[in-house]
């Protein structure tokens, strides 16, 4: 094996999020030392996933089939669709394990300055789903940023005609959080969204 191939591998690893040139070098060295137990299975898994990975035709989640596991699972046809910006957000929701419905991944947020319009996001597919599936509620789980909120308002506006309930995640005090450490904007949002006990 030439040293060039090794350098190429290190350079590729360094392009991964969370890794830099030094940590990539360390990771590659670790893999080479454990080539039997770790490197070979990793290479095989990478090759297999690379060959089979695809975006779910329904929701935009990633998986190894045309329909992702969530869309293929009939128990998740609860009538609720949770709209998220990105697959990472879908995974975050799944980690919490409380949402039993299905998802819709937009692939970004509306941003005129970044030239991202509705046609660049999977909004038409979402509207189509409302006609095809028995959807009772669309839950918007988007970031509390200008672009996230714009996208939320846009979707709510677009699907108003479909007669489906639209809700969004609450904003406020995080679980286990102390008020003292919160910024003013969060406290304002929490107070606005207060609930009766």
């Amino acid at each position: 094996m030439s040293a060039d191939r090794l350098e190429e591998l290190i350079a590729l690893m360094a392009r991964l999020p969370g890794l830099g040139p030094r940590s990539a070098r360390r990771a590659v060295l670790h893999l080479i030392k454990k080539r039997g137990q770790l490197m070979a299975p990793l290479a095989q898994a990478l090759a297999e996933v690379a060959a089979s990975a695809r975006d779910c035709v329904v929701c935009g989640n990633v998986g190894t089939q045309d329909r992702c596991e969530i869309c293929a699972d009939p128990r998740r046809a609860t009538g609720e669709i949770c709209v998220v910006e990105d697959v990472a957000d879908l995974w975050a929701m799944e980690r919490a394990g409380v949402f039993k419905g299905r998802y819709h991944v937009l692939g970004g947020t509306l941003s005129a300055l970044d030239a991202v319009g509705p046609e660049d996001l999977r909004i038409p597919q979402l509207i189509a789903r409302l006609g095809e599936e028995e959807v009772t509620e669309v839950i918007l789980a988007l970031g509390a940023t200008l672009d996230g909120q714009t996208t939320g308002h846009y979707i709510a506006d677009e699907i108003a005609a479909a007669g489906v309930a639209v809700s969004s995640l609450a904003q406020g005090v995080p679980v286990g959080g102390e008020l003292d450490y919160l910024d003013d904007g969060t406290i304002t949002a929490a107070l606005k969204a207060r609930k009766r006990l």
């Binding site: 005129a112 509705p118 909120q149 714009t150 939320g152 308002h153 846009y154 506006d157």
Partner: peptide
């Protein structure tokens, strides 16, 4: 119009 409305609300 929906894009405008979304921004105008904010």
């Amino acid at each position: 119009p929906a894009w405008y409305r979304a921004l105008e609300r904010q």
